[in-house]
Nucleic acid binder design. Sequence first.
RNA 1: GGGCGAGUAGCUCAAUGGCAGAGCAGUGGCCUUUUAAGCCAUUUGUUGAGAGUUCGAUCCUCUCCUCGCUCACCA
Length: 512
Amino acid sequence: MTDKDSNILEQTRLEKLHRLRGAGIEPYPARSQVTHSTTSAMDQFLALENGTETGAEVEKAIVTLAGRLRSMRPMGKISFAHLEDGYGRLQIFLRVNDIGQEQMDLFSHELDLGDFIQVTGYIFRTKTGEATLYVQSFILLAKSILPLPPAKDEVVDGEIVRHATLTDPEVRYRQRYADLAVNPDTRRIFQLRAETVRALRRFLDQRDFIEVETPILQPIYGGAAARPFVTHHNQLKQDLFLRISFELYLKRLLVGGFERVYEIGRDFRNEGVSFKHNPEFTQLEYYQAYADYLKIMEQTEQMVAFVAQEVLGTTLVKFDGHEIELAPPWKRVEMRQGILDATGIDIHLHRDAASLKQALEARGIKHNPNATRGKLIDGLLSEYLEPTFIQPTFVYNYPRDISPLAKSMPGDPQTVERFEGYIGGMELCNAFTELNDPLDQEARFLEMGREYAADDEESNPLDEDYLRAMSYGMPPNGGFGMGVDRLVMLLAGVHSIREVILFPHLRNRDEA
RNA sequence: GGGCGAGUAGCUCAAUGGCAGAGCAGUGGCCUUUUAAGCCAUUUGUUGAGAGUUCGAUCCUCUCCUCGCUCACCA
Protein backbone atom coordinates (compact mmCIF):
# COMPACT_ATOMS: atom_id res chain seq x y z
CA MET A 1 0.00 0.00 0.00
CA THR A 2 1.61 3.21 -1.14
CA ASP A 3 -0.69 5.47 0.82
CA LYS A 4 0.13 3.72 4.07
CA ASP A 5 2.37 6.42 5.46
CA SER A 6 0.81 9.30 3.60
CA ASN A 7 -2.66 8.79 5.00
CA ILE A 8 -3.28 11.49 7.53
CA LEU A 9 -6.04 9.54 9.24
CA GLU A 10 -3.70 6.69 10.02
CA GLN A 11 -0.99 9.10 11.10
CA THR A 12 -3.38 10.79 13.48
CA ARG A 13 -4.28 7.47 15.02
CA LEU A 14 -0.66 6.41 15.27
CA GLU A 15 0.10 9.66 17.07
CA LYS A 16 -2.70 8.93 19.51
CA LEU A 17 -1.27 5.49 20.06
CA HIS A 18 2.15 6.90 20.83
CA ARG A 19 0.65 9.48 23.18
CA LEU A 20 -1.17 6.69 25.03
CA ARG A 21 2.02 4.68 25.39
CA GLY A 22 3.79 7.83 26.58
CA ALA A 23 1.12 8.27 29.25
CA GLY A 24 1.68 4.71 30.45
CA ILE A 25 -1.46 3.32 28.87
CA GLU A 26 -0.97 0.04 26.98
CA PRO A 27 -3.07 0.21 23.78
CA TYR A 28 -3.04 -3.59 23.35
CA PRO A 29 -3.35 -5.16 26.79
CA ALA A 30 -3.30 -8.94 26.86
CA ARG A 31 -6.20 -9.46 29.22
CA SER A 32 -9.76 -8.34 29.77
CA GLN A 33 -12.38 -9.20 32.38
CA VAL A 34 -15.62 -9.49 30.47
CA THR A 35 -18.61 -10.69 32.46
CA HIS A 36 -21.42 -10.15 29.96
CA SER A 37 -22.22 -9.75 26.30
CA THR A 38 -24.41 -6.89 25.11
CA THR A 39 -27.36 -9.25 24.90
CA SER A 40 -26.80 -11.08 28.19
CA ALA A 41 -26.37 -7.75 29.99
CA MET A 42 -29.55 -6.51 28.35
CA ASP A 43 -31.45 -9.69 29.22
CA GLN A 44 -30.39 -9.34 32.84
CA PHE A 45 -31.44 -5.69 32.85
CA LEU A 46 -34.86 -6.45 31.37
CA ALA A 47 -35.41 -9.21 33.90
CA LEU A 48 -34.58 -6.84 36.76
CA GLU A 49 -36.74 -4.14 35.23
CA ASN A 50 -39.72 -6.42 34.81
CA GLY A 51 -39.31 -7.93 38.25
CA THR A 52 -39.55 -4.54 39.86
CA GLU A 53 -42.94 -3.14 40.80
CA THR A 54 -43.73 0.55 40.36
CA GLY A 55 -41.85 2.81 42.66
CA ALA A 56 -39.16 0.30 43.45
CA GLU A 57 -35.58 1.06 42.45
CA VAL A 58 -34.14 -1.05 39.67
CA GLU A 59 -31.14 -2.76 41.13
CA LYS A 60 -27.91 -1.53 39.64
CA ALA A 61 -26.33 -4.74 38.48
CA ILE A 62 -22.71 -4.07 37.59
CA VAL A 63 -21.55 -5.64 34.32
CA THR A 64 -18.34 -5.53 32.32
CA LEU A 65 -18.51 -5.83 28.56
CA ALA A 66 -16.16 -5.40 25.68
CA GLY A 67 -16.59 -4.52 22.06
CA ARG A 68 -15.84 -2.20 19.24
CA LEU A 69 -16.75 1.50 19.27
CA ARG A 70 -19.20 1.98 16.41
CA SER A 71 -20.37 5.53 17.03
CA MET A 72 -19.32 8.38 19.32
CA ARG A 73 -21.23 11.48 20.30
CA PRO A 74 -19.05 13.51 22.64
CA MET A 75 -20.92 16.51 24.06
CA GLY A 76 -18.40 18.20 26.27
CA LYS A 77 -18.98 17.01 29.79
CA ILE A 78 -20.96 13.93 28.75
CA SER A 79 -20.59 11.52 25.92
CA PHE A 80 -22.69 8.89 24.19
CA ALA A 81 -21.38 6.06 22.07
CA HIS A 82 -22.42 2.67 20.77
CA LEU A 83 -20.49 -0.46 21.56
CA GLU A 84 -20.82 -3.52 19.34
CA ASP A 85 -19.85 -7.05 20.24
CA GLY A 86 -20.48 -10.39 18.57
CA TYR A 87 -24.07 -10.37 19.74
CA GLY A 88 -25.33 -6.86 19.20
CA ARG A 89 -25.04 -3.22 20.11
CA LEU A 90 -25.49 -1.29 23.28
CA GLN A 91 -25.37 2.45 23.87
CA ILE A 92 -22.93 3.60 26.53
CA PHE A 93 -23.01 6.86 28.46
CA LEU A 94 -20.09 8.64 30.13
CA ARG A 95 -20.19 11.63 32.44
CA VAL A 96 -17.27 13.68 33.67
CA ASN A 97 -18.72 13.72 37.21
CA ASP A 98 -18.31 9.96 37.39
CA ILE A 99 -15.13 9.18 35.54
CA GLY A 100 -13.17 12.41 35.95
CA GLN A 101 -11.78 14.93 33.50
CA GLU A 102 -8.73 12.87 32.61
CA GLN A 103 -10.73 9.83 31.52
CA MET A 104 -13.25 12.05 29.76
CA ASP A 105 -10.48 13.68 27.71
CA LEU A 106 -9.00 10.28 27.00
CA PHE A 107 -12.33 9.06 25.69
CA SER A 108 -13.06 12.14 23.57
CA HIS A 109 -9.58 12.78 22.22
CA GLU A 110 -7.61 9.56 22.10
CA LEU A 111 -10.24 6.97 21.21
CA ASP A 112 -11.56 6.42 17.69
CA LEU A 113 -14.30 4.55 15.92
CA GLY A 114 -13.18 0.96 15.57
CA ASP A 115 -11.26 0.81 18.85
CA PHE A 116 -12.03 -2.12 21.14
CA ILE A 117 -12.74 -1.07 24.69
CA GLN A 118 -13.91 -2.66 27.91
CA VAL A 119 -16.56 -0.84 29.92
CA THR A 120 -17.87 -1.41 33.43
CA GLY A 121 -21.12 0.01 34.76
CA TYR A 122 -24.83 -0.58 35.04
CA ILE A 123 -27.69 -0.27 32.62
CA PHE A 124 -30.29 2.49 32.90
CA ARG A 125 -32.76 4.15 30.58
CA THR A 126 -32.08 7.52 29.01
CA LYS A 127 -34.69 10.23 28.53
CA THR A 128 -35.58 8.71 25.21
CA GLY A 129 -35.98 5.30 26.82
CA GLU A 130 -32.95 3.59 25.31
CA ALA A 131 -31.36 1.09 27.62
CA THR A 132 -27.83 2.37 28.05
CA LEU A 133 -24.76 1.38 30.00
CA TYR A 134 -23.81 4.02 32.55
CA VAL A 135 -20.04 3.76 32.44
CA GLN A 136 -18.13 3.86 35.73
CA SER A 137 -14.80 2.93 34.18
CA PHE A 138 -13.36 1.89 30.87
CA ILE A 139 -10.07 0.69 29.41
CA LEU A 140 -8.75 0.45 25.88
CA LEU A 141 -8.35 -3.14 24.66
CA ALA A 142 -7.11 -2.59 21.11
CA LYS A 143 -6.37 0.59 19.19
CA SER A 144 -7.59 0.77 15.60
CA ILE A 145 -5.06 2.35 13.25
CA LEU A 146 -6.90 1.97 9.97
CA PRO A 147 -10.36 3.55 9.97
CA LEU A 148 -13.14 1.14 9.09
CA PRO A 149 -15.35 2.15 6.19
CA PRO A 150 -17.98 4.37 7.80
CA ALA A 151 -21.35 2.73 8.16
CA LYS A 152 -23.80 5.02 9.83
CA ASP A 153 -27.32 3.97 10.42
CA GLU A 154 -30.40 5.30 12.06
CA VAL A 155 -33.62 3.73 13.19
CA VAL A 156 -36.71 5.02 11.38
CA ASP A 157 -40.01 3.48 12.40
CA GLY A 158 -38.20 0.43 13.71
CA GLU A 159 -36.38 -0.07 10.41
CA ILE A 160 -32.62 0.32 10.30
CA VAL A 161 -31.75 2.79 7.56
CA ARG A 162 -28.10 2.66 6.62
CA HIS A 163 -26.52 5.77 5.24
CA ALA A 164 -22.87 5.66 4.30
CA THR A 165 -22.02 2.01 3.99
CA LEU A 166 -19.44 -0.16 2.32
CA THR A 167 -20.90 -1.35 -0.99
CA ASP A 168 -17.97 -1.71 -3.38
CA PRO A 169 -17.91 -5.46 -4.15
CA GLU A 170 -14.20 -5.48 -4.71
CA VAL A 171 -13.41 -4.11 -1.27
CA ARG A 172 -16.11 -6.26 0.29
CA TYR A 173 -14.60 -9.46 -1.14
CA ARG A 174 -10.92 -8.61 -0.84
CA GLN A 175 -11.27 -7.16 2.64
CA ARG A 176 -14.03 -9.39 3.91
CA TYR A 177 -13.00 -8.56 7.49
CA ALA A 178 -13.98 -4.93 6.86
CA ASP A 179 -17.22 -5.99 5.18
CA LEU A 180 -18.08 -8.20 8.15
CA ALA A 181 -17.11 -5.49 10.60
CA VAL A 182 -19.48 -2.89 9.18
CA ASN A 183 -22.22 -4.81 7.39
CA PRO A 184 -24.45 -6.85 9.70
CA ASP A 185 -26.17 -8.35 6.65
CA THR A 186 -22.91 -9.97 5.62
CA ARG A 187 -22.46 -11.47 9.07
CA ARG A 188 -26.01 -12.77 8.91
CA ILE A 189 -25.35 -14.60 5.65
CA PHE A 190 -22.44 -16.50 7.14
CA GLN A 191 -24.33 -17.30 10.30
CA LEU A 192 -27.06 -18.66 8.07
CA ARG A 193 -24.48 -20.64 6.17
CA ALA A 194 -23.18 -22.24 9.36
CA GLU A 195 -26.72 -23.10 10.42
CA THR A 196 -27.40 -24.59 7.00
CA VAL A 197 -24.42 -26.92 7.23
CA ARG A 198 -25.39 -27.90 10.77
CA ALA A 199 -28.92 -28.69 9.62
CA LEU A 200 -27.64 -30.82 6.73
CA ARG A 201 -25.49 -32.80 9.16
CA ARG A 202 -28.41 -33.17 11.56
CA PHE A 203 -30.66 -34.50 8.78
CA LEU A 204 -28.13 -37.10 7.73
CA ASP A 205 -26.96 -38.03 11.23
CA GLN A 206 -30.56 -38.70 12.24
CA ARG A 207 -30.72 -41.22 9.39
CA ASP A 208 -27.66 -43.16 10.57
CA PHE A 209 -25.21 -41.72 8.08
CA ILE A 210 -21.62 -41.42 9.18
CA GLU A 211 -19.51 -38.47 8.19
CA VAL A 212 -16.14 -39.33 6.63
CA GLU A 213 -13.18 -37.54 5.11
CA THR A 214 -11.55 -38.69 1.90
CA PRO A 215 -8.44 -37.45 0.10
CA ILE A 216 -8.33 -34.00 -1.43
CA LEU A 217 -4.95 -34.71 -3.02
CA GLN A 218 -5.51 -37.55 -5.44
CA PRO A 219 -3.20 -39.38 -7.83
CA ILE A 220 -6.15 -39.94 -10.19
CA TYR A 221 -9.13 -37.60 -10.31
CA GLY A 222 -12.63 -38.61 -11.26
CA GLY A 223 -16.30 -38.69 -10.40
CA ALA A 224 -17.19 -35.64 -12.45
CA ALA A 225 -16.42 -34.06 -15.78
CA ALA A 226 -14.20 -31.16 -14.96
CA ARG A 227 -10.68 -29.94 -15.43
CA PRO A 228 -8.60 -30.41 -12.29
CA PHE A 229 -5.97 -28.34 -10.57
CA VAL A 230 -2.57 -30.00 -10.65
CA THR A 231 -0.02 -29.91 -7.87
CA HIS A 232 3.15 -31.72 -7.02
CA HIS A 233 4.61 -33.60 -4.08
CA ASN A 234 8.30 -32.77 -3.98
CA GLN A 235 9.61 -35.61 -1.84
CA LEU A 236 7.64 -38.28 -3.66
CA LYS A 237 8.24 -36.64 -7.03
CA GLN A 238 4.58 -37.26 -7.78
CA ASP A 239 2.00 -35.12 -9.57
CA LEU A 240 -1.26 -34.91 -7.69
CA PHE A 241 -4.69 -33.54 -8.50
CA LEU A 242 -7.03 -31.62 -6.26
CA ARG A 243 -10.25 -33.57 -6.18
CA ILE A 244 -13.12 -32.65 -8.48
CA SER A 245 -15.58 -34.86 -6.57
CA PHE A 246 -15.72 -37.27 -3.63
CA GLU A 247 -17.69 -39.94 -5.44
CA LEU A 248 -15.17 -42.67 -6.20
CA TYR A 249 -13.72 -42.68 -2.69
CA LEU A 250 -17.08 -42.62 -0.94
CA LYS A 251 -18.33 -45.58 -2.95
CA ARG A 252 -15.18 -47.53 -2.04
CA LEU A 253 -16.47 -47.23 1.52
CA LEU A 254 -19.69 -49.01 0.57
CA VAL A 255 -17.51 -51.87 -0.62
CA GLY A 256 -15.88 -51.75 2.80
CA GLY A 257 -19.20 -52.30 4.53
CA PHE A 258 -20.38 -48.84 5.54
CA GLU A 259 -23.94 -48.53 4.31
CA ARG A 260 -24.51 -44.80 4.67
CA VAL A 261 -21.67 -42.31 4.30
CA TYR A 262 -21.47 -38.61 3.62
CA GLU A 263 -18.86 -35.94 3.28
CA ILE A 264 -19.12 -32.17 3.30
CA GLY A 265 -16.04 -30.56 1.90
CA ARG A 266 -14.29 -28.68 -0.81
CA ASP A 267 -14.16 -29.54 -4.50
CA PHE A 268 -11.79 -27.81 -6.90
CA ARG A 269 -12.55 -27.29 -10.57
CA ASN A 270 -10.22 -25.50 -12.93
CA GLU A 271 -12.95 -23.76 -14.89
CA GLY A 272 -14.62 -20.45 -15.52
CA VAL A 273 -15.81 -18.19 -12.75
CA SER A 274 -19.34 -16.81 -12.70
CA PHE A 275 -22.11 -15.74 -10.36
CA LYS A 276 -22.73 -19.43 -9.64
CA HIS A 277 -19.22 -20.85 -10.03
CA ASN A 278 -16.19 -20.48 -7.76
CA PRO A 279 -13.01 -22.52 -8.44
CA GLU A 280 -13.32 -24.09 -5.01
CA PHE A 281 -16.76 -24.78 -3.68
CA THR A 282 -18.42 -26.78 -0.97
CA GLN A 283 -20.10 -30.00 -1.88
CA LEU A 284 -22.23 -32.45 0.03
CA GLU A 285 -22.18 -36.01 -1.26
CA TYR A 286 -23.83 -39.01 0.32
CA TYR A 287 -24.22 -42.67 -0.66
CA GLN A 288 -26.88 -44.94 0.72
CA ALA A 289 -26.87 -48.70 0.26
CA TYR A 290 -30.11 -50.30 -0.91
CA ALA A 291 -31.56 -47.00 -2.08
CA ASP A 292 -32.29 -46.07 -5.70
CA TYR A 293 -32.66 -42.70 -7.36
CA LEU A 294 -36.38 -42.48 -6.65
CA LYS A 295 -35.72 -42.96 -2.95
CA ILE A 296 -32.99 -40.31 -3.12
CA MET A 297 -35.34 -37.96 -4.94
CA GLU A 298 -37.86 -38.14 -2.12
CA GLN A 299 -35.13 -37.73 0.45
CA THR A 300 -33.84 -34.65 -1.38
CA GLU A 301 -37.17 -32.84 -1.12
CA GLN A 302 -37.34 -33.72 2.53
CA MET A 303 -33.78 -32.63 3.21
CA VAL A 304 -34.02 -29.22 1.53
CA ALA A 305 -37.37 -28.51 3.16
CA PHE A 306 -35.99 -29.65 6.53
CA VAL A 307 -32.98 -27.35 6.25
CA ALA A 308 -35.10 -24.36 5.23
CA GLN A 309 -37.47 -24.96 8.13
CA GLU A 310 -34.59 -25.29 10.61
CA VAL A 311 -32.68 -22.28 9.33
CA LEU A 312 -35.44 -19.89 8.29
CA GLY A 313 -38.47 -21.28 10.07
CA THR A 314 -40.28 -21.52 6.76
CA THR A 315 -40.06 -23.39 3.47
CA LEU A 316 -41.00 -20.31 1.47
CA VAL A 317 -37.95 -18.42 0.22
CA LYS A 318 -37.49 -15.28 -1.86
CA PHE A 319 -34.89 -15.58 -4.57
CA ASP A 320 -34.16 -13.36 -7.55
CA GLY A 321 -37.59 -11.77 -7.41
CA HIS A 322 -39.43 -15.06 -7.07
CA GLU A 323 -41.24 -16.70 -4.19
CA ILE A 324 -40.13 -20.29 -4.09
CA GLU A 325 -41.88 -23.05 -2.14
CA LEU A 326 -39.38 -25.71 -1.07
CA ALA A 327 -41.84 -28.07 0.63
CA PRO A 328 -42.43 -31.45 -1.08
CA PRO A 329 -43.55 -32.60 -3.50
CA TRP A 330 -41.37 -30.97 -6.14
CA LYS A 331 -42.29 -30.90 -9.79
CA ARG A 332 -40.92 -33.84 -11.76
CA VAL A 333 -40.05 -33.64 -15.43
CA GLU A 334 -38.98 -36.70 -17.36
CA MET A 335 -36.13 -35.51 -19.55
CA ARG A 336 -37.41 -36.91 -22.85
CA GLN A 337 -40.83 -35.40 -22.26
CA GLY A 338 -39.45 -32.08 -21.09
CA ILE A 339 -37.28 -31.68 -24.18
CA LEU A 340 -40.13 -32.81 -26.43
CA ASP A 341 -42.44 -30.20 -24.92
CA ALA A 342 -39.85 -27.44 -25.12
CA THR A 343 -38.35 -28.11 -28.55
CA GLY A 344 -40.57 -30.62 -30.35
CA ILE A 345 -37.62 -33.02 -30.55
CA ASP A 346 -38.12 -36.57 -29.29
CA ILE A 347 -34.68 -37.77 -28.26
CA HIS A 348 -35.87 -41.37 -28.36
CA LEU A 349 -36.26 -41.02 -32.11
CA HIS A 350 -32.64 -39.89 -32.40
CA ARG A 351 -30.51 -42.68 -31.07
CA ASP A 352 -27.16 -41.33 -32.20
CA ALA A 353 -25.43 -37.99 -32.33
CA ALA A 354 -25.67 -37.67 -36.13
CA SER A 355 -29.43 -38.11 -36.15
CA LEU A 356 -29.91 -35.68 -33.29
CA LYS A 357 -27.71 -33.09 -34.99
CA GLN A 358 -29.90 -33.29 -38.07
CA ALA A 359 -32.98 -32.64 -35.97
CA LEU A 360 -31.28 -29.66 -34.31
CA GLU A 361 -30.19 -28.23 -37.64
CA ALA A 362 -33.70 -28.66 -39.04
CA ARG A 363 -34.92 -26.38 -36.26
CA GLY A 364 -32.00 -23.95 -36.46
CA ILE A 365 -30.76 -24.81 -32.97
CA LYS A 366 -27.08 -24.04 -32.62
CA HIS A 367 -24.86 -26.76 -31.19
CA ASN A 368 -21.28 -27.93 -30.92
CA PRO A 369 -20.64 -30.12 -34.00
CA ASN A 370 -18.22 -32.34 -32.05
CA ALA A 371 -20.59 -33.07 -29.18
CA THR A 372 -21.76 -36.53 -28.28
CA ARG A 373 -25.47 -37.36 -28.20
CA GLY A 374 -25.49 -36.92 -24.45
CA LYS A 375 -23.78 -33.55 -24.61
CA LEU A 376 -26.26 -32.36 -27.23
CA ILE A 377 -29.14 -33.40 -25.00
CA ASP A 378 -27.51 -31.74 -22.02
CA GLY A 379 -27.16 -28.59 -24.11
CA LEU A 380 -30.89 -28.63 -24.81
CA LEU A 381 -31.56 -29.07 -21.12
CA SER A 382 -29.38 -26.10 -20.15
CA GLU A 383 -30.73 -23.91 -22.92
CA TYR A 384 -34.45 -24.64 -22.91
CA LEU A 385 -35.36 -26.16 -19.57
CA GLU A 386 -32.97 -25.04 -16.83
CA PRO A 387 -33.88 -21.32 -16.90
CA THR A 388 -37.58 -22.17 -16.58
CA PHE A 389 -37.14 -24.26 -13.44
CA ILE A 390 -37.75 -21.55 -10.88
CA GLN A 391 -39.84 -23.65 -8.52
CA PRO A 392 -38.04 -26.80 -7.34
CA THR A 393 -37.97 -29.29 -10.17
CA PHE A 394 -36.46 -32.72 -10.68
CA VAL A 395 -35.35 -33.64 -14.18
CA TYR A 396 -34.86 -37.39 -14.44
CA ASN A 397 -33.67 -40.15 -16.78
CA TYR A 398 -30.45 -38.97 -18.39
CA PRO A 399 -28.47 -40.07 -21.44
CA ARG A 400 -25.97 -42.78 -20.64
CA ASP A 401 -22.91 -41.28 -22.29
CA ILE A 402 -22.83 -38.25 -19.99
CA SER A 403 -23.42 -40.40 -16.91
CA PRO A 404 -20.69 -43.05 -16.75
CA LEU A 405 -21.24 -43.82 -13.07
CA ALA A 406 -25.01 -44.28 -13.18
CA LYS A 407 -26.94 -47.48 -13.69
CA SER A 408 -28.90 -47.96 -16.91
CA MET A 409 -32.65 -48.27 -16.82
CA PRO A 410 -33.98 -51.79 -17.20
CA GLY A 411 -34.91 -52.27 -20.85
CA ASP A 412 -33.33 -48.98 -21.98
CA PRO A 413 -29.54 -49.20 -21.92
CA GLN A 414 -29.14 -45.73 -23.48
CA THR A 415 -30.82 -44.05 -20.53
CA VAL A 416 -29.70 -44.06 -16.91
CA GLU A 417 -31.43 -43.68 -13.57
CA ARG A 418 -30.27 -40.17 -12.78
CA PHE A 419 -31.87 -36.90 -11.76
CA GLU A 420 -30.86 -33.33 -11.19
CA GLY A 421 -32.67 -30.88 -8.93
CA TYR A 422 -33.15 -27.31 -10.15
CA ILE A 423 -34.27 -24.30 -8.14
CA GLY A 424 -34.32 -20.67 -9.16
CA GLY A 425 -33.10 -21.61 -12.64
CA MET A 426 -29.95 -23.08 -11.11
CA GLU A 427 -28.71 -26.65 -10.86
CA LEU A 428 -28.66 -27.54 -7.18
CA CYS A 429 -28.01 -31.26 -7.02
CA ASN A 430 -27.29 -34.36 -9.01
CA ALA A 431 -28.00 -37.97 -8.06
CA PHE A 432 -28.36 -41.43 -9.45
CA THR A 433 -28.79 -45.09 -8.89
CA GLU A 434 -25.10 -45.91 -8.73
CA LEU A 435 -23.59 -48.34 -11.16
CA ASN A 436 -22.27 -51.30 -9.16
CA ASP A 437 -21.57 -53.75 -12.00
CA PRO A 438 -17.78 -53.77 -12.38
CA LEU A 439 -17.89 -55.14 -15.92
CA ASP A 440 -20.36 -52.51 -17.07
CA GLN A 441 -18.32 -49.86 -15.25
CA GLU A 442 -15.15 -50.88 -17.04
CA ALA A 443 -16.98 -50.79 -20.36
CA ARG A 444 -18.25 -47.27 -19.58
CA PHE A 445 -14.78 -46.01 -18.75
CA LEU A 446 -13.40 -47.43 -21.96
CA GLU A 447 -16.34 -46.08 -23.95
CA MET A 448 -15.72 -42.66 -22.51
CA GLY A 449 -12.06 -42.89 -23.41
CA ARG A 450 -13.09 -43.46 -27.03
CA GLU A 451 -15.69 -40.71 -27.25
CA TYR A 452 -13.63 -37.97 -25.74
CA ALA A 453 -10.70 -36.76 -27.74
CA ALA A 454 -7.33 -37.65 -26.29
CA ASP A 455 -6.61 -34.02 -25.47
CA ASP A 456 -9.95 -33.46 -23.77
CA GLU A 457 -8.91 -32.73 -20.23
CA GLU A 458 -12.34 -33.65 -18.97
CA SER A 459 -11.88 -37.27 -19.90
CA ASN A 460 -10.78 -38.87 -16.66
CA PRO A 461 -7.89 -41.29 -16.49
CA LEU A 462 -9.07 -44.85 -15.85
CA ASP A 463 -9.23 -45.56 -12.13
CA GLU A 464 -8.31 -49.23 -11.93
CA ASP A 465 -8.32 -49.33 -8.17
CA TYR A 466 -11.95 -48.20 -8.22
CA LEU A 467 -12.80 -51.05 -10.56
CA ARG A 468 -10.99 -53.49 -8.28
CA ALA A 469 -12.97 -52.22 -5.29
CA MET A 470 -16.22 -52.66 -7.14
CA SER A 471 -15.17 -56.15 -8.20
CA TYR A 472 -15.14 -57.23 -4.56
CA GLY A 473 -18.86 -56.49 -4.52
CA MET A 474 -20.63 -53.16 -3.98
CA PRO A 475 -24.17 -53.10 -2.64
CA PRO A 476 -26.75 -51.44 -4.87
CA ASN A 477 -26.96 -47.84 -3.76
CA GLY A 478 -28.17 -44.37 -4.47
CA GLY A 479 -25.77 -41.44 -4.49
CA PHE A 480 -26.33 -37.73 -4.13
CA GLY A 481 -24.30 -34.56 -4.61
CA MET A 482 -25.28 -30.98 -3.90
CA GLY A 483 -23.62 -27.58 -4.09
CA VAL A 484 -23.84 -26.25 -0.56
CA ASP A 485 -22.96 -22.72 -1.68
CA ARG A 486 -25.94 -22.69 -4.01
CA LEU A 487 -28.26 -23.95 -1.31
CA VAL A 488 -27.05 -21.12 0.91
CA MET A 489 -27.59 -18.63 -1.94
CA LEU A 490 -31.15 -19.80 -2.12
CA LEU A 491 -31.80 -19.61 1.59
CA ALA A 492 -30.05 -16.26 1.94
CA GLY A 493 -31.82 -14.88 -1.11
CA VAL A 494 -28.60 -13.69 -2.77
CA HIS A 495 -27.86 -13.98 -6.46
CA SER A 496 -24.08 -14.37 -6.41
CA ILE A 497 -22.02 -17.25 -5.06
CA ARG A 498 -19.47 -14.68 -3.90
CA GLU A 499 -21.93 -13.44 -1.34
CA VAL A 500 -21.94 -16.82 0.41
CA ILE A 501 -18.20 -17.57 0.24
CA LEU A 502 -16.16 -15.71 2.85
CA PHE A 503 -13.11 -15.29 0.67
CA PRO A 504 -14.17 -15.83 -2.94
CA HIS A 505 -11.56 -16.23 -5.61
CA LEU A 506 -10.65 -12.97 -7.32
CA ARG A 507 -8.12 -12.16 -9.95
CA ASN A 508 -4.65 -11.26 -8.80
CA ARG A 509 -4.26 -7.62 -8.11
CA ASP A 510 -1.09 -6.22 -9.54
CA GLU A 511 0.27 -3.91 -6.89
CA ALA A 512 3.26 -2.74 -8.95
C1' G B 1 -11.44 -15.81 -23.46
C1' G B 2 -15.54 -12.17 -25.92
C1' G B 3 -19.14 -7.97 -25.21
C1' C B 4 -21.14 -3.94 -22.15
C1' G B 5 -20.58 -0.73 -17.88
C1' A B 6 -17.67 1.33 -13.90
C1' G B 7 -13.02 3.25 -11.38
C1' U B 8 -12.60 11.11 -8.82
C1' A B 9 -10.58 12.73 -0.98
C1' G B 10 -10.31 7.51 4.15
C1' C B 11 -16.06 6.39 2.75
C1' U B 12 -20.52 7.65 -0.46
C1' C B 13 -20.84 10.42 -4.69
C1' A B 14 -20.86 15.39 -7.91
C1' A B 15 -18.44 18.30 -11.85
C1' U B 16 -16.19 20.47 -16.39
C1' G B 17 -11.48 20.41 -22.89
C1' G B 18 -9.46 26.05 -18.92
C1' C B 19 -7.73 26.92 -10.57
C1' A B 20 -11.57 19.43 -8.92
C1' G B 21 -16.39 19.98 -5.28
C1' A B 22 -20.21 18.29 -1.41
C1' G B 23 -21.75 15.21 2.69
C1' C B 24 -19.64 11.92 6.10
C1' A B 25 -14.89 10.65 8.52
C1' G B 26 -10.45 13.56 10.58
C1' U B 27 -8.42 17.98 13.39
C1' G B 28 -9.33 22.51 16.80
C1' G B 29 -13.24 24.92 19.64
C1' C B 30 -18.44 25.20 22.09
C1' C B 31 -21.93 21.90 24.18
C1' U B 32 -24.37 17.48 31.04
C1' U B 33 -29.69 12.78 27.86
C1' U B 34 -27.48 12.26 22.47
C1' U B 35 -28.37 8.61 18.70
C1' A B 36 -26.94 9.82 10.64
C1' A B 37 -26.26 14.64 17.59
C1' G B 38 -25.75 19.91 16.59
C1' C B 39 -23.04 24.71 15.82
C1' C B 40 -18.26 27.43 14.35
C1' A B 41 -13.53 26.85 12.05
C1' U B 42 -10.31 23.73 9.29
C1' U B 43 -7.19 19.64 6.64
C1' U B 44 -7.30 15.99 2.80
C1' G B 45 -6.44 14.57 -4.28
C1' U B 46 -0.58 10.88 -8.84
C1' U B 47 -9.12 12.00 -10.83
C1' G B 48 -7.01 3.22 -11.27
C1' A B 49 -1.81 2.86 -14.27
C1' G B 50 0.76 4.16 -18.75
C1' A B 51 1.01 6.44 -23.56
C1' G B 52 -1.12 9.71 -27.35
C1' U B 53 -4.02 14.13 -29.42
C1' U B 54 -4.05 19.33 -27.61
C1' C B 55 -1.50 25.76 -25.96
C1' G B 56 -3.98 23.03 -22.03
C1' A B 57 -6.77 16.24 -20.59
C1' U B 58 -10.09 14.02 -14.82
C1' C B 59 -12.91 14.75 -19.59
C1' C B 60 -11.17 12.87 -26.28
C1' U B 61 -8.13 8.32 -28.35
C1' C B 62 -5.23 3.79 -27.41
C1' U B 63 -3.05 0.02 -24.15
C1' C B 64 -3.07 -2.22 -19.45
C1' C B 65 -5.13 -3.32 -14.35
C1' U B 66 -9.37 -4.25 -11.19
C1' C B 67 -14.56 -4.84 -10.21
C1' G B 68 -19.68 -5.66 -11.81
C1' C B 69 -23.10 -7.51 -15.45
C1' U B 70 -23.35 -10.71 -19.58
C1' C B 71 -21.87 -14.50 -23.26
C1' A B 72 -18.83 -18.75 -23.99
C1' C B 73 -16.90 -22.86 -21.18
C1' C B 74 -18.64 -25.96 -17.11
C1' A B 75 -21.24 -35.11 -18.81
